[in-house]
């Protein structure tokens, strides 16, 4: 029981500092999250991590709810609560605090510089997140073809993403991927 409590604390701490790595979007934090929750602490397997990300895409609300998924796997409902709170609460408090000061900072030339400097860092992290997830989700030519088809369909037509994702599931089910 004490061991469990310790691991619960570790879970909360891990998602807390992970939440602060998300510059420009949740996808940015995916490579490090995978390294921590799959590689370091083995709370989920690589396949479960990808499945959890897919489920969180299908769930309304923020994608970073994947924290709830990992927390649930590690320690049931208490784990889900701890991981979810660690992911969302501290960052939200910081956001509320900064908003009170931001109006005075906005005119400063360095405020604009920080903004311009962080955008490419955030986008590079997002691209790394895509790469990390693709390495786990694409195995063999069939999944590669499906991912490519989804990319082309979404780039060419203004389809609702959920339709394409569910169609991918249907193809996977019928083809036995």
């Amino acid at each position: 029981m004490t061991l469990d409590l310790l691991d619960l604390l570790r879970l909360g701490w891990t998602f807390l500092w992970l939440s602060f790595l998300a510059i420009g979007g949740g996808l940015a934090v995916i490579p490090e999250m995978q390294r921590q929750v799959v590689g370091r602490f083995a709370w989920v397997t690589a396949q479960e991590f990808v499945d959890g990300y897919t489920l969180s895409q299908l769930t309304p609300g923020p994608n970073m709810l994947i924290a709830v998924f990992v927390g649930y796997r590690a320690h049931g409902v208490p784990g889900a609560l701890v991981a979810g709170a660690a992911m969302f609460l501290p960052a939200s408090v910081l956001a509320a605090l900064v908003q009170r000061r931001w109006s005075t900072l906005r005119g400063h030339p360095w405020a604009g510089a920080v903004e311009r400097a962080l955008v490419p860092v955030g986008l590079g992290l997002m691209a790394a997140g895509v790469f990390t997830l693709a390495r786990a989700a694409v195995h063999g030519w069939a999944t590669a073809a499906l991912a490519t088809a989804a990319t082309v369909l979404l780039a060419a037509f203004a389809l609702p993403p959920i339709v394409v994702v569910l169609a991918g599931g249907l193809v996977g089910w019928l083809a036995g991927l």
């Binding site: 897919t54 997140g129 895509v130 694409v138 394409v164 569910l166 996977g172 036995g176």
Partner: peptide, 15 residues
């Protein structure tokens, strides 16, 4: 299989 198919399609979405 269903999850694997959806996971592959999600890659397309985030790309």
């Amino acid at each position: 299989h269903l999850m694997h198919g959806m996971a592959a399609a999600v890659i397309g979405l985030i790309v």
